[in-house]
Write a protein that binds this DNA or RNA. Structure first.
Lengths: 341, 341
DNA sequence: AATTGGCACTCGACTGCGTGGAGTGCTATC
DNA sequence: GATAGCACTCCACGCAGTCGAGTGCCAATT
């Protein structure tokens, strides 16, 4: 084993101990608790090098070492092995999710489950509208000049929108339009809809141009809106448990960030480059001040006929990365399975 | 002024000072900051009496006094005047809520607004399904043996449910059923539906008893489900700001309680005796261990054609009751106006 | 009878000091 | 390159001592 390899072993050991004890770890403790085969003095040399490389720091002169963001990054990239969950754990996940009665229930169960498994804050994004396909469009006249448009996707998601019209409704026209819309659109991926909608306008125009245009506009606009994406969060209480130890001041900024759908959606989108793999953002990498002292572990789920979205967990920098990654990956997989079935 | 009256003045002064400073208040400070017209010694006598009555306590022998739950209760019941919001504040509320585009948006804006106004955790309950009335029922065949039932209420709320059938669907029957359901049910209050549904079953039975029964059962079951009620929460970060000072250990239990829809719904239901007035639950009165160190201020909103539900704020025992009550009441009123319009 | 001033007393908050121990970096040695 | 030894640093902790806010009680006053 080269001395370079041993240094990484030392880093791994430091992180494992620090995660377990929450206290800076010194060379003596390290040599006792791990079989590194070298003396504390040697470890000290390695530590000096790791510190030089910016992977660990000393809180103060006569204290042990603590990993930096870069240290955790190194650990996650090169050292951590995602340890699979136990069979009972997997059974429990599967059973719990299969009892769900509809999409909302699936998501709700998944997010609570993940929060409990990881003992951290869990986050689940609803399957994205844009990538799922259309199952049904419903037009409901409401009074003389209002029209409720209901859009239903193959994932079971329902979007609604009320239109205000400039002239009174023609019931017959509405009925015809409903049929035509559904014939023309059902089963299409939302991305493919724009063209289909346009040709529909030209085709139907004669019989009530104004109504058709406004409805079609509403449908495509609704579909285009990215703000339709939603994220649910659970387990915020898990933040409070270790608050004093893990966060320099308060958990306030973290809670704020978690309440901002926009922030979470941006982060999830950034991490979505690879759909299926588990992605990790550590500390500052989240690019958000409130989350600078947290790490974010996410995985994509869905696909194959259902929408695509992400699940994840948010916790302190000092988190059990292998365990969290395993739990996130497992929940993502079971979610995919449930939604495809 | 009787000495009894002065005692209550002293209680009021103690609460005001304690809320402002977060520190136990002594007789000297009281006589200086308030025009009570008596000496500290007299105040001390009154304090002894108030303590005897269980309205205030001393954290330790040589400290000032702190209000008890009972003290706050007394204050809220007999001493607090709800001070109306300023005109600009009311303008801002009105403007913000009026920009909302649909029900979800109204609720979302309302809860964030209230969190900001009160600097506490805000809670808004969706207008209850049970009390709103039915606008439309939609049946959507999905494959041969699945039927999606979509229920739309006058408040714009959409509920969905997927049915699994034991035999293949008869499209024509579904179409007929849709029409009949809507003719029979539209505009009825949900409470009145049970009977209407039953008579519908007997009327339609011959033409496909199984399908009709299963659909009707699903509709009434969905409507009956109280679990359909939802509460949204915002501003949990406001808890963290004063965490150390206001909560004996951590805010964990509070966050847990706030994540449990069931807990919130129970509390809101209990406070709903009077629909319009502002109700307050102080500390233990919430009957929930996690909320023993918080108070809950709520008000009903809605009615008149829209659903009925509650808005509220949750904060530390030591909260600005008059201000919070004013904000909650104002938001409730504007919500009522917006939903009726 | 209520109010007031005076006074002794209590007790937490804060400060300063000394000590112990964990941990380091450096240097000489194998 | 790895190790043992050693001097050094600095925090955490415990301990006294002081300060001051606040009280309760009592006697005097109105």
């Amino acid at each position: 084993m080269s001395s370079e390899d041993r240094r990484l072993d030392v880093l791994r050991a430091i992180i494992e101990d620090y995660v377990a004890t929450r206290e800076p770890v010194g060379s003596r403790a390290l040599s006792e608790r791990h079989q590194l085969g070298v003396s504390p003095a040697t470890i000290r040399n390695d530590m000096a090098a790791l510190e030089e490389a910016g992977l660990i720091v000393q809180p103060h002169t006569s204290a042990g070492r603590v990993p930096t963001d870069m240290g955790y990054r190194q650990f996650v990239d090169r050292l951590a092995e995602v340890k699979p969950l136990s069979l009972p754990e997997r059974r429990a996940i599967s059973a719990l999710l299969e009892q769900a009665v509809d999409l909302d229930d699936v998501i709700d169960r998944a997010v609570r489950l993940l929060a409990q498994l990881t003992q951290q804050v869990a986050v689940v994004q609803y399957p994205s509208l844009r990538r799922s396909s259309l199952r049904h469009v419903e037009l409901v006249p409401v009074g003389a000049r209002h029209l409720l448009v209901v859009i239903i996707t193959t994932t079971g998601r329902v979007e609604q929108r009320t239109l205000e019209l400039t002239e009174d409704l023609d019931e017959a026209l509405v009925a015809r339009l409903r049929v035509r819309l559904n014939v023309a659109l059902s089963g299409l991926r939302l991305a493919e809809l724009s063209k289909a909608l346009e040709s529909l306008v030209t085709e139907l125009s004669p019989a009530g141009a104004a109504l058709v245009r406004v409805v079609v506009a509403a449908v495509s606009e609704t579909l285009a809106q990215e703000s339709e994406e939603r994220v649910v969060v659970a387990g915020t209480a898990n933040l409070a448990r270790t608050a004093g130890a893990d966060f320099s001041r308060t958990i306030g900024p973290v809670l704020e960030a978690l309440e901002e759908q926009v922030v979470l959606l941006r982060l999830l989108a950034e991490m979505a480059e690879d759909h299926t793999a588990v992605a990790v953002r550590i500390g500052r990498e989240t690019q958000h001040a409130g989350l600078a002292e947290t790490s974010f572990v996410t995985s994509g789920y869905g696909g194959e006929g259902s929408g695509v979205a992400r699940v994840g967990a948010v916790g302190p920098l000092r988190m059990d990365y292998p365990g969290t990654m395993a739990a996130v990956r497992a929940v993502a997989r079971y979610l995919t399975r449930i939604l495809a079935g």
